[in-house]
Write a protein that binds this DNA or RNA. Structure first.
Lengths: 229, 229, 229, 229
DNA sequence: CATGAATGAGGTTTCATTCAT
DNA sequence: AATGAATGAAACCTCATTCAT
């Protein structure tokens, strides 16, 4: 897999910080509330980068402020303190992901096609991207931020597991999947994808991993090898 | 799986600090060198606990010293600074694991039996234990300690991958494994085990995971379902 | 010579910290930039006192902060660390001295008169004052702060030597000085003044030295004894 | 002046540390007391080097011990603590210098010859040598070690001044010196020599100083220029 | 609202001194 | 007498948080 340009984790709507009102136009829709939201978004974005790069404890608010282009004090207008900033942050960033998850594509075609489409999405949107790093961040800081781990479990993991389980059961019912017990452990379905995420962060340098190919092999294992396509 | 009593990560030989000479015996092998080794071991043990509990940056040397029962300055007799302490530490703790890995049980019986035995070991020795936490620690701090990630890759990951690949190829040759492409991605074989490790740290509270059962299902997927045992 | 009241080494312009706005006037020019400059000046002043009293290594930043009336952290807003504080400090304090040196009085009268005027200045401004102590500080710490020694040589010593040499050559040309080789070693001209500086710091207690009289005798040696004035 | 090999500041009698008793001879005069004296001498020598190189506060006992080839604890068998070590040290090293001073060569020949001989000695034995550095060390640390300054004044400075004064008065009586007031300030006679000592430590790198030539010029100034030699 | 200078608690690290061996 | 591992006070420096402007 080739290195993609780093994608922002923020929904594009809030990433308008750089846009300066052209001379002449009267800062039209940019009332105070909007400006504030932009600032907050800039802080969130900057903080995410820093937290991912250094971890919670080693990240300096000074650096976040500098990267966000605001003064240090401004951060405290939006967040109570460093801890709650981290917690709110993760929530803010995860929400759109959840939205995606729940808006699954319409179930047309085989279960394998569905799963494969989902894996493709995951490859493009998570593995090797900033969002993948976020997953690693949660693994890293989870134990010290139970509220983050809780939130992540509730909003992402439990829903994801449930969705996978539904798919697996559908696959079993349709005869696409033979291993009936798989429905008890949807984790097995996503495990290689998670490993790929971690691998990219830690070992890509030593041994690049073709995540796409690996996921295909894994699906072959579950659905049986595909006939000539 | 129920929570096991926390196991020490230190080889038992060096964990004699607590042992008070029984009345009557004359301070047996406790020469200076031994005492120093004991102290170092105590520091390593304490540091590991603290690093696992709080991460590198948030761990205080004060707490390590207190837990190890030594003065703060004593740590600096054994380690240059906090960073190299962390790095040496991980090495020290990993080495016995590597020793285990290389001393694989003699290849008797089917490949599945071998893999199952190995999985059993892993369950007992890693998942849900301090050693499992260590894996999560490496995932968490790896990007900020490339030397640690490098070491871990070289000593554990690459060897483990190689060993798994050999087993898989054997399984394919013997007809136990049908999916031939699996040999290209031994990661798939271990992925659920890794997920189990992480799950225990982060989500066990919300949804306990029967790792043993999950691994069995995963092996069924690879080797085909077992007939009545 | 009697002990003079300790003179500040700071140009008076920046020493307004203590000055409380007289009742009635409205906090006049005290904008943020000014306040910052005042604080920095206070730190420089305090640091100089402490360094002179204890030397570089034995001086505690805590004491400097206390004396300057700022918090410890404030020092680090103005200086990178203790070492560069010391180096910048010496520069800051020396600069006005250099300015003085280069703005020598207009060459009226005999060379002897010129030199004598200069010696008088030196007596009043350096010997037995904080500035004299600074010279001793540089002698003391120079070998460990080559950059300080370099700066001092470049800005003070080499210029001073050059100026003295010019005066000596003038004196020789006019027939006021007979010893022609003196131009090769202007150090001889200033040596007793330097000795006086050191003497005041170290031995004044045991044997007070009338620096003024000594310098006069030394000039008699060089210019010939003065006739009745 | 060319760089001389570093000379030990210790009287040779006590510098026998390196001498190991040849096999066969029965460690003859090397009884306990002698060994102790050797160790002490080694400590003094090592400490002097370190103090000169780093100053009192920045010198580590660890380094002294290492350089002296003894354990850190051993230092405390000979000296109460770091401060008194420094004080005793300076005394120990200065004593032989004083002995020299008081054992002035027999007063043959002219006063100028005497003074010149003395200057020659000073050049060889002090300027640019470890002993010169010691003078700078005393200037540097004197204010924080009044007892050292006192001792130095009493044993070296006051005696030196007295001796110089005697010579000057003899010179005046014999008509070799015309400036009668010089006897009031023998400091003038030695000032250039002191300046040379300091110059070598601080500025030799930037502008080497021919101390011998400078001292000759200075004596010409005092005694009148020498006729053809 | 926004700023960023100022704070000071708290962290890492050093090193003079002690003391059991 | 000599050692050097151990101590812990004290130093330097960082950085989350506050608040006057």
């Amino acid at each position: 897999m080739t290195k993609k340009p780093v994608k922002s984790v923020m929904p594009s709507a809030v990433r308008t910080k750089a846009r300066a009102p052209a001379a002449g136009e009267a800062a039209p829709a940019s009332n105070r509330a909007t400006r504030a939201a932009e600032r907050r978004a800039a802080i969130v974005e900057a903080a995410m980068e820093e937290f991912i790069a250094r971890g919670f404890a080693a990240t300096r608010l000074d650096d976040i402020a500098k990267r966000a282009g605001v003064a240090k004090g401004t951060i405290y207008l939006h967040f109570k303190d460093k801890e709650s900033m981290f917690e709110e942050l993760v929530r803010t960033v995860i929400v759109p992901v959840v939205a995606r998850l729940t808006a699954l594509p319409p179930p047309t075609g085989s279960v394998r096609d569905l799963v494969e489409a989902f894996a493709g999405d995951f490859l493009k949107e998570v593995i090797g991207t900033r969002r993948g790093d976020l997953v690693r961040l949660i693994v890293a800081e989870g134990p010290r931020f139970p509220s983050v781990a809780d939130f992540y479990y509730r909003e992402v993991v439990s829903r994801g597991i449930a969705a996978m389980r539904a798919l697996i059961e559908l696959g079993i019912a349709r005869g696409e999947i033979r291993e009936k017990n798989l429905a008890r452990y949807p984790q097995i379905l996503v495990a290689p994808a998670m490993i790929a995420v971690i691998w990219q962060s830690l070992f890509a340098r030593h041994a690049p991993l073709d995540a796409q190919d690996m996921l295909r092999v894994h699906l072959d294992l579950i659905f049986g090898e595909r006939r000539a396509t």
